[in-house]
């Protein structure tokens, strides 16, 4: 178990700044996610942490030791890759034994460790299979087993679930969470999927254009975003400028500020006489229904629990919009930028 400190990391590729003066603290045993759109620099940050890339300036500290100049072999970090990166020329057990052999572990110990880690990831029956014969989900579990068996100080996950299909992704996500909690290994998890980050993490850092936009618990980044990027990326919030806030909700934001409302915080109500909005799209997904409402050229996304919906709205209906309080607070979210 270890803590990780990232101090003032800057990285440029040719003339493009990928990361600029970036700081993060990951505590012992924590499951920490870095979430952001593609190209935000999250994978580069992960590779710098692993020692696969080197920063132009800044420091990486693991357990208060400066590892910035250390090669990947010396860092005791394990990586779980998006495309699994299993050695195709080896079997399942050979893949898992690889790291242990390098640590000069005793043969009998290796065998025991392989057996127990395969049990953890429920792949005992595939011990001697070639890794190329496994399904995507199985390959991902082998790649996780290969890393945790060496008991690293830190596990780095590079979008490990994005190549799995939806049902498998949810299943593997739950398993991952359980494994990490049981093993208690400090984990840094990189993803572009905010739902995944919210479900798995103790804390989340939201990254955009190489800059940390906000760090906090899942609840904090979801309900208390510090800026419009976090609000939009994490909660798919609707943003209203000074004028629209005034017209639609009669809220004064102040000059140049934004009102941010999550889709589930806005309730469309049928109002054929005074309704300012028109329903342009209805998407029923079972438990909830998503309405798109157009007001003054602006499309507003709203989300309602289907069961609570007394009247079913249709495309073309005129509606007025009410603000709901979902989080039990009556404070409106006003953002500076």
């Amino acid at each position: 178990m270890a803590n990780l400190e990232i101090r003032g990391i800057t990285k440029k590729f040719n003339d493009t700044t990928v990361l600029s003066d970036l700081n993060l603290d990951v505590r012992q045993g924590e499951f920490f996610s870095i979430v952001g759109p593609s190209g935000c620099g999250k994978t580069t940050l992960l590779r710098i942490t692993a020692g696969l890339e080197f920063p132009d300036s800044g420091k990486i500290l693991i357990n208060d030791t400066d590892v910035t100049a250390l090669p990947p072999q010396k860092r005791k970090t394990g990586i779980v890759f998006q495309n699994y990166a299993l050695f195709p020329n080896m079997t399942v057990s050979e893949n898992i034994a690889y790291g242990l052999e390098i640590l000069k572990t005793d043969k009998s110990v290796i065998k025991n460790k392989i057996d127990s880690v395969l049990e953890i990831v429920s792949l005992s029956h595939k011990l001697n299979n070639s890794v190329t014969s496994l399904s995507g989900g199985e390959q991902q579990r082998v790649s996780l087993a290969r890393v945790i068996v060496t008991e690293p100080e830190l596990i780095l996950f590079d979008e490990p679930l994005s190549n799995l299909d939806y049902a498998l992704r949810i299943e593997t996500r739950n398993e991952l969470k359980r494994l990490q909690r049981d093993a208690g290994i400090t984990s840094v998890y990189v993803t572009h999927d905010q739902t995944e980050a919210l479900a798995l993490s103790d804390r989340i850092a939201v990254l955009d254009k190489g800059i940390v936009q906000q760090t906090g618990t899942p609840h904090e980044v979801y309900y208390d975003p510090r800026n419009s990027f976090t609000a939009g990326f994490i909660g798919h919030a609707n943003l209203f400028d000074e004028i629209n806030s005034e017209i639609i909700f009669n809220v004064r934001t102040g000059r140049g500020k934004f009102l941010a409302l999550l889709p589930e915080e806005i309730r469309p109500v049928k109002n054929e006489t005074d309704g300012k909005g028109i329903i342009t799209d209805v998407q029923f997904t079972g438990f909830s229904t998503e309405y798109s409402v157009q007001v003054n050229e602006k499309i507003i996304k709203t989300l309602c629990a289907t069961a609570s919906e007394a009247e079913h709205l249709k495309t073309g209906d005129k509606v007025s919009l009410n603000i709901l309080s979902v989080n039990g607070e009556n404070k409106l979210r006003i953002l500076d930028k």
Partner: peptide, 18 residues
């Protein structure tokens, strides 16, 4: 050859020769 397998090997502690 997937470059990630090489990175994976390095981060599991293997030298360049290995």
């Amino acid at each position: 050859i997937d470059g990630n397998t090489i990175d994976a090997s390095y981060s599991l502690g293997a030298s360049k020769t290995k």
